[in-house]
Amino acid sequence: MNLLDALRTHRLLAIVRGTDPEAALASVLTLADAGVALVEVSLTTADALTVLRRARAALGPGYGLGAGTVLTADDARLAAEAGAAFLVTPALAPSVATAGQLGLPVLAGALTPTEVVQATTAGAVAVKLFPASLGGPDYLRALRDPFPGTAFVPVGGVDAAGARDYLARGAVAVGVGSPLLGDAPSGGDLAALRERAAAFRAAVAA
Results as ranks from 00 to 15, higher is better:
A91I: 10
P94W: 06
P94N: 01
S95G: 05
S95F: 08
V96K: 00
V96F: 02
A97K: 04
T98A: 12
A99P: 00
A99N: 00
A99L: 01
Q101E: 14
L102T: 00
L104P: 02
A108K: 01
A110L: 09
A110Q: 06
T112M: 12
T112N: 08
T112V: 11
P113Y: 11
T114P: 10
T114M: 12
T114Y: 14
V116P: 06
Q118I: 13
A119R: 09
A119H: 12
A119V: 12
A122R: 12
A122S: 11
A122E: 10
V125H: 07
A126P: 03
A126H: 04
V127G: 01
K128P: 10
L129E: 09
L129I: 09
L129A: 07
F130P: 04
F130Q: 05
P131F: 13
S133A: 13
S133F: 15
L134P: 12
P137N: 02
L140V: 03
R141Y: 10
A142W: 10
A142G: 06
L143T: 04
L143G: 02
L143F: 09
R144E: 09
P146G: 02
P146C: 03
F147W: 07
F147K: 00
P148T: 04
G149C: 06
T150A: 13
A151K: 08
A151M: 10
A151V: 10
A151T: 09
V153G: 07
P154A: 11
V155M: 15
V155H: 13
G156R: 08
G157H: 14
G157R: 12
G157W: 14
V158C: 13
D159H: 12
D159L: 14
A160H: 10
A161Q: 15
G162N: 13
G162P: 15
A163K: 08
R164K: 15
R164S: 14
Y166M: 09
Y166K: 05
Y166V: 08
L167H: 09
G170T: 03
A171P: 03
V176I: 03
G177L: 02
S178F: 08
S178Q: 06
L181N: 00
G182Y: 03
D183N: 07
D183Y: 06
A184R: 01
P185G: 00
P185F: 03
P185R: 00
